[in-house]
């Protein structure tokens, strides 16, 4: 069956994120004074056939390791899996 897997890819904490910093500055300028930190990453939604939800998640983890995330500078979190 087909599963829809969502994955967040984010710059690793501690690595300078100028894009996140610029967005954070803009939010504070807008008056959102409580904003302390912003990180900008990517959200991917992948439809894939697999035997089970666990198998779909395992496949997406492998995709992240090999292509979707840079192991030097990024972390990823599989945010959800559902039948597509």
């Amino acid at each position: 069956m087909t599963f829809r897997v969502a994955v967040h890819v984010l710059p690793r904490r501690g690595i300078l994120d100028p894009q996140g910093k610029a967005v954070g500055d803009a939010l504070r300028t807008l008056g959102f004074a409580g904003v302390t930190d912003v990180h900008v990453g990517r959200h991917l939604v992948i439809d894939t056939s697999a035997d089970s939800a666990d198998a779909a998640k395992a496949a997406v983890k492998s995709m992240c390791d090999r292509l979707l995330a840079n192991p030097v500078t990024e972390d990823f979190v599989i945010a959800g899996v559902e039948a597509a």
Partner: peptide, 17 residues
Amino acid sequence: ACEAHLLPGALLRNNGG
């Protein structure tokens, strides 16, 4: 070359555009 792991490290978005 970095993405291909022919070289170490990574090249990220400039600080300053």
